[in-house]
Structures are given as C-alpha cells and as structure tokens.
Amino acid sequence: MSDLLERLRDRGWRLTAQRRVVAQVLDGDHVHYTADEIHALAVELLPEISRATVYNTLGELVTLGEVLEVSTDGRAKRYDPNARHAHQHLICESCGTIRDVHPAGDPLGSLPDAERYGFAISGVEVTYRGLCPDCAKARA
C-alpha cells in the first residue's frame, strides 16, 4: 500500500475534503489511474468534487513529487502514488494495465561509463512491455 496520505500529513499539506478524497483514491498497490478514472472514483466518495479540482490536485501532487505521472505510448497519463519507492513499470501492450515491478540489480549500474557520454545521471526509467495474462489468453 502506498503511504500517500501519511506523507501528505507529514508535509503539512492542507488536506481539504477534496484533496483527501483524491489521495484516498490514489492510495494502494499498483495504482495507476487516469485523471478521469480518479475523478469517477472520487465522485463516489464526494459527489460534489469537480473534474477541475481533481486535475488541479493531481498537478499539485506531481509538483510536490508525491505522485508520478506515467505516460505510455499516446495513452492518457496515469498517476502513480508510489513515488518514494524505487520501481519500474510493466505495461500490457493491449489493454494498458500497469504493474509496479522491482527488478534485481541497479539499472544505472548496467550502463557502461563509455555509454554515459559525460552525463551526470540523475535517474533511470525502465519500462517492460508485454501482454497481461488476460490479453495473452484472449489472443491465444
């Protein structure tokens, strides 16, 4: 489970009812919802929450570094609350399902010095692609 609500409280971020609901929707393992999905789920908890409030809150959370924006091949951006734990993503090429994965080893360490071209590297993003079990079964 992500610790998003706890992190926001620790930061002293003002948790209005709307912000709290967005954070609650984002809390959990392997959460990668689009803004529209977040809005639909938030409305179930707080019917008066507006789409603009959800978008603004997501923008603030991304700016704070508490939520990651995940973009995949022209699909809608998804929001990942697992911003504090190093991980990579496994994406289904058919349905777009995203799972957090934690491969062994250091992906930065696998880049030889000669391939760094003098860059001071600040991070690594690795995306694994394939078919989820449901999509693989449907294609069989």
Rank of each mutant, 00 (worst) to 15 (best):
M1R: 08
D3R: 14
D3V: 09
L5G: 10
E6Q: 15
E6I: 15
E6N: 15
L8Y: 04
L8V: 05
R9I: 08
R14I: 09
T16P: 06
A17M: 05
A17P: 11
Q18H: 10
Q18C: 05
R19I: 10
R19T: 11
R19H: 13
V25I: 08
L26D: 00
L26H: 02
L26I: 01
D29S: 08
D29T: 06
H30Q: 15
H30N: 15
H30V: 12
H32M: 06
T34P: 08
T34L: 08
H39V: 03
A40N: 00
L41K: 08
L41F: 05
L41E: 06
A42C: 01
V43S: 00
V43Y: 00
L45E: 11
L45G: 02
L45M: 14
L46H: 02
P47I: 01
A52E: 11
Y55F: 02
N56A: 14
L58Y: 04
G59I: 03
E60C: 07
L61M: 05
V62E: 13
L64N: 04
G65T: 13
E66T: 09
S71V: 06
T72Y: 14
D73P: 05
D73G: 11
R75E: 02
R75C: 00
A76P: 01
K77T: 04
K77D: 04
Y79F: 15
Y79N: 03
P81N: 13
P81K: 10
N82G: 03
N82I: 03
A83R: 06
H87S: 06
Q88H: 12
C95W: 02
T97R: 06
I98E: 07
I98T: 13
D100W: 01
H102E: 10
A104E: 13
G105V: 12
D106C: 13
L108E: 08
L111W: 10
P112T: 07
P112E: 07
D113I: 12
R116D: 08
R116W: 10
G118Q: 11
G118R: 11
F119E: 15
F119N: 13
I121Y: 05
I121N: 03
S122K: 14
S122R: 14
V124E: 09
E125K: 10
E125Q: 13
V126Q: 06
Y128D: 00
L131Y: 07
L131K: 06
P133F: 01
D134H: 00
C135N: 09
C135Y: 08
A136M: 04
A138R: 09
A140V: 07
